[in-house]
Amino acid sequence: MQTGDKFVHTFEVTPLIYERFIEAYADRNPLHVDAEYAKARGFKDIVMFGNILNGFVSYFVGECLPMKNVYILSQSIKFAQPVYMHDTLEFNAEVTDYIEVVKSYGFKFYFKNQAGVKVAKGEIQIGLII
């Protein structure tokens, strides 16, 4: 893996992911569970939890890279647009740097939905377990 390498993976926000997220974290903010509340505030339906996308980032690091001896050192994400149930998100990541002395790769990433709208973007720094 080297600077400039690109990765693409597609995720779907399924009811199972949404329900398990609530079960695990007990976040029942009305924006995420009450459709009438969300619609009254300009959204087309309940908004998915932003941190579901962080779970997708975790999957990318743990399962999509060419090596398994990885761990996340830091991660940031900015949410630009709402994500809804059943959205199909295309995750795009690019290796931005490799700091050889500490065996650490940096990535920039973004998610775009099925309409081609960027819904979130961020950065990841991972380390390699040697």
Binding site: L73, D97, I99, V101, V102, S104, G106, Q125, G127
Partner: peptide, 23 residues
């Protein structure tokens, strides 16, 4: 862990290469 993040931040900020011998 922060030691690693410091080196990462230093290389990115100063745009220099740190070697294992340096480190």
């Amino acid at each position: 862990l922060n030691n690693i993040l410091l080196v990462v931040a230093i290389e990115k900020h100063f745009k220099v290469k740190i070697t294992s011998a340096d480190f």
